[in-house]
Design a protein around this nucleic acid. Structure first.
Lengths: 206, 206, 206, 206
DNA sequence: ACTCACGGGACAGCCCGTTCTT
DNA sequence: AAGAACGGGCTGTCCCGTGAGT
């Protein structure tokens, strides 16, 4: 039952690896894979090249690990505490509200959006990771939507996948616009839209 | 009567410049600024460096011109023929339908989305161009929305800027998802969403 | 008897050609073939590329013509007026004195020395020209020496080729040193040496 | 007892640097600074640009180091073993003989002559090096001449600087001619001349 | 566990020589 | 004669990954 193997982190090496990821994640998120050099990460971490390559065998591997790190932080932050909402529909609204009002966990905006666009051309490994992350998110939303349907909060004929895609598209598109304009307005508009949409789906129920 | 003025393009150099842009635009759109080298463009155009740098003084300038080129093509294609729709509201629906069903004018997806994300970190000149393009698009949509309001097709209290931002966010977010999943579904879902939204705004009118 | 064909120079084109040579000759002489670009010559002449390539089909041809030009000027200046000296031996002394005290006809030092060193590696056409020029010079000196022998001014067993080579080597070596040190001293020393040598060859005559 | 000090060369980098110099020196000596590209040196050394620029920060610096290398080899070879000569005057004769009969240490002829002519126009750093090298050589010769005077082998009124300049001029001029004609004759003639000159200065002593 | 030297490789921007059109 | 156009080469920089040393 006890695990004699190295726990999550204990050795010096493991903490160094974490430190590298913490510094590399925002860099990759801001500048993309090509726009970010090992030298940049050396400067950010204070390590030398050899010190970095000891922990990651290539830039690709480092980028992937950094993305996983960004993802973990982002999901943790976005998850929020939905238990404060009583009903599934309220949970959906809270989820949207939380997304809109929570600052990004990693500098440079939403890592999912950034990486999806950045890897559009190549890097299939990273691309798969992003796809998986979006699918998990979609599952979570559609699951809540299904619960809302089951709770008679939403019309029974609501397509939960459509709803999930809509929530994600609207929010991520708004993130892009918000970052471009350096203004929260698009995000707030997205929240309005999604709330209105949920109202509609609910009101039409009867 | 003779016209010594040089028309838009006639000289050999101008046609070369255009050829460069036509080949460079999809490369930049697919790989981003950092991910695309002058050597790539040399290979794509069949020109040597001297032939390229004669027309563009730097990679930045080339990227900017290529983006303008992408933008021009994209806008031309997206503009579509809204005269086929009778009312402003129908024009809005047609605009959305056109966006969803028209393939991108330049390989690599929507240049506005790609460039907005790619220049999130640096390159303010390009960033300004993207911002301007989105604003023009938003104006176009909000103007149609205003016309729909004036025609009593939409609720008079509809916030046209909100509506425009919503349309753009939802469509662009869906573009990202569609490219990531290599599936049109997210785009079709976005169309559904926007049509439902317009229905709602219309039905609530009375 | 009259010659209706273009004489040495008359047309506008011919004068342009001469102007190019006059400006190009010192440039090539100072910087060498590789160290001097067509752009430099454009700047010096005020002409554009097309204007230069109209008269010379390549940089090599231009360099060769420029060297011929330098050579012509140099020989004209070095020839001096040896008729002022009464005897062949005095002519030799006067030739040396003239070489030492006459400034170079073309900026950048002795074109024979410069071109000999510059073409040491390649450019056989130019190299042949230099060789020929040195041989003509050597013939001239050895011819004077032979006349001095015939006039019983120099020992009859004097090797006139040796003497000619010695004069040339000493003078050209001194030119190199003088330019390096920016001082006339090495040239004056060479004159002393050659005079002493001629004295010796004369005194030993009996 | 341990020696923490780094000896002349031991590390891998130092040997690479030496290898670069060994290959670059003859190239620069043959083709001159402008006539020799880094690409040429890459081909000669088998290294890539990164490997070369790691050791030299610019082409200028490389050329300077290559010239120092050429100079070192040349001086070492020319120095010869003058102890075989008994008297100062004999040492002078031996010095001349050694110069005439010893092949150049670096392909392309005498680096001092070549560089003096090549840098006549620009590159003051290199120019200073050449000047210094000639001055050292002149000091060496004039010092031997002074010893010969002190030993009553040469006339006491001999101008040792004149003599040194004469030796250098005659030899270097002959090197130029010899390379131009691809014949040792001019060098042999120079030796004859200098021996005759020394004879004269000696014989006139009494 | 980390530093630092090392070197292969690619890249951007510049310039050069030459041709072609005007 | 001007000057635009273009193929090609070059310099200096950067980057990535390795390996010796510590």
């Amino acid at each position: 039952l006890s695990q004699p193997f190295r726990s999550t982190n204990s050795s010096k090496g493991e903490s160094t690896r974490q430190a590298i990821l913490e510094h590399a994640a925002p860099l990759f998120n801001q500048r993309g894979f090509e726009g970010c050099s090992i030298t940049d990460i050396m400067a950010a971490t204070g390590l030398q090249k050899g010190g970095i390559y000891r922990h990651f065998s290539s830039k690709e591997e480092l980028a992937e690990a950094a993305f996983r790190h960004s993802l973990k932080l982002t999901l943790r932050r976005r998850r929020g505490d939905l238990t404060q909402a009583r009903t599934p529909l309220d949970k959906l609204r809270l989820l949207v509200e939380h997304f809109v009002h929570t600052p990004t966990a990693v500098a440079g905006g939403c890592p999912l959006l950034n990486t999806a666009v950045d890897t559009d051309d190549g890097n299939p490994a990273l691309r798969t990771l992003v796809r998986r992350a979006f699918r998990a998110w979609r599952r979570r939303i559609s699951s809540l939507a299904q619960q809302a349907i089951d709770a008679h909060e939403l019309r029974p004929d609501t397509d939960v996948l459509w709803l999930a895609n809509t929530v994600i598209s609207t929010l991520e598109g708004a993130v892009m616009l918000s970052r471009l304009e350096r203004s929260k307005t698009p995000l707030l508009h997205a929240q309005q839209t999604l709330n209105l949409l949920l109202d509609t789906l609910a009101s039409k129920r009867r």
